[in-house]
Simulated assay, not measured.
Amino acid sequence: MAASELAMEARNLGVRFRRNRRGRRNLKDLFSGSSRRSRPDEFWALRDVSFSVAPGESIGVVGRNGQGKSTLLKLVAGVLIPDQGNMMVNGGVAPLIEITGGFVGDLTVRENVRLTSGLHGMPRAEVARRFDSMIEFAGLGDFLDTPYKHLSSGMKVRLAFAVVSQLDEPIMLVDEVLAVGDKAFREKCYRRIDELLAEGRTLFFVSHSERDLRRFCTRGLYLDKGQLVMDGPIAEVLDRYNSDQS
């Protein structure tokens, strides 16, 4: 499949971080080229990671904490720029990652829905058309004029999921969002993701829940120490991952 026909393609991706703020790169480093040299306080969160994803695929990313999963998700989202290789994404993304980011504490629920939807590129008329369904999904009809900062953590997550899951972007990025909230809300989220997958959306899903990975994903990427250990059917990838942990 040609690159222009893919939902995304990673080629030799690498991301390098510093272990302490005193050692971070400065402008002199960036322009002199010294940033390319390895330093004792640096580590590679990802190194030489390559894969491609066709439109409509459901990809689950597995691995222990600290192995590069969320870093990879942020590369796909465009939040991070790789130090090595490149990340190509065709089409917009609906980022269900760090899900409550972007909401303003002093604004009301009503104001935050309009603001956040607009920041994600939803036209004003479309925000108005979908407003009631977003509020109904979040179950916050009695809190429209309540400042966001006064909501419980669970209410904040419900509101954020309700907004972002209404975006029409072809690619969904999900990072452990289903691990929060009560059982009834999780089931509502499951049904919404099922609906989006049925529409042909592409899913890139990071989770520690084997149940969720098997439910939503057909293919898996297994990361260990920042490197891609295995790329294959989700059941085989999970079997390999579980075997390595035993």
Rank of each mutant, 00 (worst) to 15 (best):
R18V: 09
N20D: 15
N20Y: 09
N20C: 07
R21M: 10
R22N: 05
R22T: 09
G23L: 08
G23F: 05
G23N: 14
L27I: 15
K28Y: 11
L30H: 04
L30V: 14
S32W: 08
G33E: 11
S34L: 11
S35K: 04
S35V: 11
S35N: 10
S35A: 12
R36Q: 13
R36I: 02
R37T: 08
S38Y: 06
S38N: 12
R39G: 13
P40C: 04
D41V: 07
E42P: 02
E42M: 03
E42N: 04
W44N: 01
D48T: 05
S50A: 11
S52W: 07
S52V: 09
V53S: 01
V53F: 03
V53Q: 00
P55I: 06
P55G: 07
P55T: 09
G56M: 03
V61G: 00
V61H: 01
V62C: 03
V62H: 01
G63P: 08
R64F: 02
G66P: 06
G66L: 06
S70T: 15
T71R: 06
T71M: 12
L72H: 13
L73V: 15
K74H: 15
K74W: 10
G78Q: 10
G78D: 09
L80A: 04
I81A: 14
D83Y: 05
D83G: 11
D83L: 09
G85M: 01
G85P: 08
M88Y: 02
M88D: 02
V89C: 03
N90H: 14
G91F: 12
V93G: 02
V93D: 04
A94D: 01
A94V: 03
A94T: 06
P95D: 11
L96R: 01
E98L: 11
E98I: 10
T100W: 05
G101Q: 12
G102N: 04
G105S: 10
G105C: 11
D106A: 12
L107W: 13
V109M: 01
E111N: 06
